[in-house]
Nucleic acid binder design. Structure first.
Length: 364
DNA sequence: ACGTCCCGCCAGGTG
DNA sequence: CACCTGGCGGGACGT
C-alpha cells in the first residue's frame, strides 16, 4: 500500500483552480471521446490509448464504451480493443432494441398498462454484421423486468451498465414515453422493488448513462411539464452539426460549421495524480468551450416510429449526423489513418458540443 | 438539504 | 498470476 495521495483539494501544485465536477463528467468525457475517434477512418480503439488521450483512468472509459456499445457506436473486438462503428450504426441498433423491446414487455408504461410479460427469450436475428462464432447468441439480454423470479445465471457479463442502457433506450423506443425522469425509469426498469439502496444505485447508473446519451444528443435533459422534476427527453436524432450525409430535406437549419466561436478554452483534464505512465504527453489542453448550442429543433426531429403497432413500417431513419461538430481536418498528415498521434493538434481543433442544460449562454 | 454523480475499491473474468 | 472488466456505493460537489 503506497499511501495514496489523500485529499485532492486544491491541488498541490500551481494554480489551485477549484476544479469542477462538470469538467470531469462522463458526458463531457464522452464528447471528447466521440470527437477524438470520429475523425477520419478510425477503426480500432484501444482502451488505454483512449484513457491516456483523454486523461482519465481506464475505469471511466469502460463506462463510456459500454453505453456506446449499447447503441451500436462501438463494438467489442478484443481485449482492450473496440471497433468504431460510427453514428450511422445507431439507427440499426435502435431498431433492434425496439424490436426486442416490443417482444418483451416494454410496451406498458405510462398511461396504458399491458402486463403482458412474455418471457420469450427468443433469439432475435442479429442483423449485425460481424458474427463471431465464439458466442453465437447470448447477445440478447433477457430483460427480466419485474416478476422475473427466474434466477437464470445467464450472462454473468453485462449486468448493469450495458444492459441498463439498452433497457433505458427501449423505454423510449418502445413506448410513447418521450419524457421521463430517472426515478421513474429506475422504478420501471427494476420492477417495483424500490428498496432504498437498490434503487439509489440504479439511479446513479442512470445518471451516468443519461449523461453519455446526452452528449450524443440522443436525449436531452429538461423537466416535466409540471416543471419541477428534471427529466430526460428522447431526441433520437437531431443533433446539430453539419454532416456530409444529406439530412432530411427539411433541415432548414444551416448547421454550418462556422469557425469555432472564440476560443474560450479551458485547460483542464487530469492534473491531479496520474498513473505511473503518461509522462511524455503532459497534459494536453483541450480547448473546450462550454457553449450551449441551443439549436432549435424545429422541424420534426422525428424519432423512430412511436407507434406501438407499427412494426416495420417506417424504417427510414434519417439519422442526422449529430456528429460532434465537424471540422474533420486533421492537422497534419494524412498518412496515418490508424493512429493519430497529434494529440495536441487534435485537441486544439476538437470541439465538443457540450450540452448545457439550464442556462443559455449566448455565445454564438 | 437534497439532487447529481465522480472516484476508485475490489471482485469476477480472462489470457 | 497479472491484467482486464466493471459492479457498487461513499461521499463530495452543485444548486
Amino acid at each position: 500500500m503506497a499511501a495514496p495521495p489523500p485529499t485532492v483539494t486544491g491541488g498541490d501544485s500551481s494554480k489551485h483552480h477549484a476544479y469542477s465536477r462538470k469538467q470531469k463528467s462522463l458526458g463531457l468525457l464522452c464528447s471528447n471521446f466521440l470527437c477524438l475517434y470520429n475523425r477520419d477512418g478510425i477503426t480500432s480503439i484501444g482502451l488505454d490509448d483512449a484513457a491516456s488521450r483523454l486523461g482519465v483512468e481506464r475505469r471511466r472509459i469502460y463506462d463510456i464504451v459500454n453505453v456506446l456499445e449499447s447503441v451500436g457506436v462501438l463494438a467489442r473486438k478484443a481485449k482492450n480493443q473496440y471497433t468504431w462503428k460510427g453514428f450511422e450504426a445507431i439507427p440499426k441498433a435502435l431498431k433492434e432494441l425496439k424490436d426486442e423491446g416490443l417482444k418483451e414487455n416494454f410496451s406498458s408504461f405510462d398511461g396504458n398498462d399491458d402486463s403482458k410479460v412474455s418471457d420469450d427469450e427468443e433469439d432475435d436475428e442479429r442483423i449485425s454484421d460481424t458474427r463471431t462464432e465464439s458466442q453465437p447468441d447470448k447477445l440478447n439480454p433477457s430483460l427480466n423486468l419485474k416478476s422475473s423470479a427466474s434466477s437464470k445465471p445467464e450472462n454473468r457479463r453485462e449486468k448493469s451498465l450495458a444492459l441498463l442502457t439498452q433497457n433505458f433506450v427501449k423505454l423510449f423506443v418502445c413506448t410513447s414515453v418521450d419524457l421521463i425522469s430517472l426515478d421513474e425509469a429506475a422504478k420501471l426498469l427494476l420492477g417495483d422493488a424500490h428498496n432504498s439502496s437498490i434503487m439509489r444505485t440504479k439511479v446513479r447508473r442512470l445518471y451516468d448513462i443519461a449523461n453519455v446519451l446526452s452528449s450524443m444528443n440522443l436525449i436531452e435533459k429538461t423537466h416535466t411539464s409540471d416543471t419541477r422534476k428534471p427529466a430526460f427527453r428522447w431526441l433520437g436524432f437531431g443533433g446539430r452539426g453539419q454532416s456530409e450525409h444529406n439530412i432530411s430535406a427539411h433541415e432548414s437549419v444551416v448547421t454550418e460549421s462556422k469557425k469555432r466561436p472564440f476560443g474560450a478554452d479551458i485547460t483542464n483534464i487530469s492534473f491531479k495524480r496520474n498513473k505511473m505512465d503518461l509522462g511524455e504527453s503532459l497534459n494536453m489542453n483541450f480547448s473546450k468551450q462550454k457553449q450551449v448550442k441551443q439549436e432549435s429543433y424545429v422541424d420534426e426531429i422525428d424519432r423512430i416510429t412511436f407507434d406501438e403497432d407499427s412494426n416495420e413500417s417506417t424504417k427510414s431513419y434519417q439519422f442526422g449526423p449529430f456528429a460532434p461538430v465537424t471540422i474533420a481536418r486533421v492537422g497534419a498528415s494524412e498518412n496515418n489513418p490508424r493512429k493519430v498521434h497529434d494529440l495536441e493538434k487534435l485537441a486544439t481543433i476538437y470541439r465538443p458540443q457540450y450540452q448545457n442544460q439550464g442556462k443559455v449562454s449566448i455565445i454564438s
